[in-house]
């Protein structure tokens, strides 16, 4: 009992401190909102440290992006802030369908980029005119050296293989089922992963023998995996649309970023990671 009472004072202090911090946080946000249009242009965008208001770039936009864009967007973000010193870009990567759910629930973000047009279509009420900025294809991901000798989609129905796909609500999961349908192959996945990176992880860790992912993911996974090409007649082309979220308080910087994604500079980076031009 005594020790409990002794503990009460620090707890109260901590609670009070947290309240203060929470209060400060709100002020900070308000500041940001007001300063949106003024560009100080003094801070190198790359620093990204959320420090005192005077140090930070005039605007930081939050971009929700499909998991398959992770590596490409991280580099694109650096390039963008390098040339737009008054801008800072923050990314949040997840499965497109999860991002869409976040937007519907009013997540405080400015831009959303999904891995399919269907998910974006579902957000018609929440976003401004989406534009396709990149395309992607599917590939079969296997262990390095392809020890199970997988050569085609048809092999994935073999009983001795452990195959994982992304869930049917995830764009890459839907595309994979579409491709399997085109090839007339019935596959029973052992797990339905929540995004494309999780599929890569399963194959990379050796828990699964094969998975269907984007060519870009196979490329960024590097040596840890190998991939088996899916012929064009069975393959599915994924279109990546990007749009500004209507509730965003930074419409202009957000729109500037979405426009920039279609410039040669951005397309060059996307190409490096295996994306095709829109």
């Amino acid at each position: 009992m005594r020790s409990l009472r002794r503990a009460a004072a620090p707890i109260a202090a901590v609670s009070a401190a947290l309240l203060l911090v929470a209060g400060c946080g709100d002020d900070d946000k308000d500041d940001k909102g007001k300063k949106d249009d003024k560009s100080t242009g003094q801070t190198p965008g790359g620093s990204g440290a959320p420090s005192a208001p005077a140090d930070k770039p005039a605007s930081t936009i939050t971009v929700l992006a499909a998991a398959s864009l992770t590596s490409a967007f991280e580099e694109a973000g650096k390039a963008y802030t390098k040339n737009h010193k008054d801008q800072n870009v923050k990314f949040s990567f997840a499965g497109s369908q999860e991002l869409a759910a976040q937007v519907k629930q009013g997540a405080p973000a400015d831009v959303i980029a999904t891995a399919d047009t269907k998910t974006m279509d579902g957000l018609a009420a929440q976003v401004n005119a989406p534009q396709v900025f990149a395309k992607n294809k599917l590939t079969i991901l296997v262990a390095p050296g392809n020890p199970k000798k997988i050569t085609s989609l048809a092999d994935l129905s073999r009983g001795d293989l452990t195959v994982v796909l992304a869930g049917p609500t995830v764009p890459v999961g839907r595309y994979a089922r579409e491709a399997l349908g085109k090839a007339g192959v019935a596959v029973k996945p052992k797990s339905e992963e929540v995004d494309v990176k999780a599929v890569v992880t399963r194959v990379r860790m050796g828990e699964a023998d094969a998975g269907i992912v984007y060519t870009t993911d196979a490329k960024s996974a590097g040596e840890a995996v190998a991939s088996v090409e899916i012929p064009d007649q069975h393959n599915v082309v994924a279109s990546y649309p990007v749009a500004v979220i209507k509730e965003s308080k930074q419409q202009d910087p957000a729109a500037a970023f979405t426009q920039w994604l279609r410039t040669p500079e951005a397309q060059e980076i996307l190409k490096k990671y295996g994306f095709a031009a829109p």
Binding site: V164, T169, P189, K190, E192, V194
Partner: peptide
């Protein structure tokens, strides 16, 4: 569960996993 056992309806997709996934298309 989702990390070790994966996520497959009828096999390893327990209620918490189902809730998480349903929140995305059937809130």
């Amino acid at each position: 569960t989702i990390t070790f056992a994966g996520n497959l309806p009828g096999e390893t997709q327990t209620l918490p996993l189902a809730v998480y996934l349903m929140l995305q298309d059937d809130p």
